[in-house]
Design a protein around this nucleic acid. Structure first.
Ligand SMILES: [Mn+2]
Ligand SMILES: [Mn+2]
Ligand SMILES: [Zn+2]
Ligand SMILES: [Zn+2]
Lengths: 136, 136
DNA sequence: TCATTTATGAAACTCTGTTGCAATAGTAAA
DNA sequence: TTTACTATTGCAACAGAGTTTCATAAATGA
């Protein structure tokens, strides 16, 4: 979908910072951190603006957080129709130990796990590490 | 096992900082961050010493990193015989959204997942969020 | 006890992320 | 198109996590 339409569909104003950041997310197939995005941007937006842009995308369901054992948070585009109310990101994340990239395996569901009695699951998050298709 | 023995078994010198930090890990059933440990310590050790202590425990296989969507890294004692060479921590981690604690469910194995061709898994990490036994 | 090696404390630093506030830009209605 | 309103931006200042360097202190084994 076109970036300006994505923004208005998610009740966000069409600003140049948001269009630029969204364009970068669309360009890459793996999860990006704040610093990845900052380096990739042509025009210099303020660091804080980039943080706020990521937050608004997260809040409106344009991106989701990708867990990773790295120090800084990473984010990737949501594929399904996500909204402020609900994220549909029950897929597996794969981190390649060669290239370091984390990607969403959108077609692979996280298996249900039998928990001990007394534990109630509401969300789950599976990160698999290894070697990705491009690196193997 | 006694703390001094654990240290020498893992080729670490018996220092007061390490004994104190190890004692704190043994006291809690959930994963701890650097700042959790710092607050819990009676004697004031330097922040850097605590960081270095955690690193040496991680390196020698006394603790393992516990993934969590929180900002700072958390660590918990290894149960099996872990070493510098290999961590045996293929268990599930459970984060309670009420108390905020992350614990190791050492008896629950992470299920194997069918990856697309070209992907090779070497490690996996499953974080389940919900309500823990104590809070439910 | 002594020599050697490893650990610690202190200071300075980097990187990530947040907050408050004044200036600016987007939007929808006139 | 112009206006008015509100959301967004840039800037500065801040807080927290984690690292590096180096001189001093403590642990270990001889
Ligand atoms: Mn994803
Ligand atoms: Mn664990
Ligand atoms: Zn790769
Ligand atoms: Zn709980």
């Amino acid at each position: 979908m076109e970036a300006p339409l994505i923004l208005s569909n998610h009740d966000l104003r069409n600003t140049s910072a948001r269009l630029a950041v969204l364009g970068i997310f669309q360009k890459y197939t793996y999860a990006l951190s704040h610093s990845n995005i900052e380096k990739e941007l042509q025009k210099d937006f303020d660091r804080v603006t980039i943080y706020r842009t990521i937050h608004s995308f997260l809040d409106k369901g344009i991106v989701h957080k990708v867990m990773d054992d790295s120090e800084s948070a990473k984010y990737a585009l949501c594929v399904d129709e996500c909204s402020s109310d609900h994220h549909h990101d029950n897929h597996v994340h794969f981190k390649c130990s060669k290239c370091g990239n984390s990607e969403c395996l959108n077609n692979i569901q996280i298996p249900l796990t039998n928990l001990p009695s007394g534990y109630i699951a509401t969300e789950s998050n599976l990160l698999i590490e290894g070697v990705c298709k491009a690196c193997s």
